[in-house]
């Protein structure tokens, strides 16, 4: 078994109102110096060794992310 991490983030040009709301809250809470925040999703998958990188990419591209508005990165973190 391998652990695979998929990170999904809104594309840079796509409005991210949730990230903006977090960024706007930080100074109010007394945290200075945070320029901007982008909010995305983090998936952790337990994956059989038989699952190849192409399959993982297909899972990310066609299901975990919507490539119209999101970028994704697949990483194998341990095996």
């Amino acid at each position: 078994m391998a652990r695979v991490v998929v990170d999904v983030m809104p594309k840079p040009e796509i409005l991210d109102p949730q990230g903006q709301a977090v960024a706007n809250a930080l100074p109010r809470l007394g945290f200075a110096g945070i320029g901007s925040v982008r909010q995305g999703k983090h998936f952790e998958l337990e994956v059989d060794d038989s699952v190849d990188d192409a399959t993982l990419a297909k899972i990310a591209e066609t299901f975990l992310a919507n490539p119209v508005v999101e970028d994704w990165v697949v990483r194998r973190v341990e095996s």
Partner: peptide, 8 residues
């Protein structure tokens, strides 16, 4: 695609 409303 439809995303979160501007202004949340």
């Amino acid at each position: 695609v439809l995303i979160r409303n501007k202004g949340l």
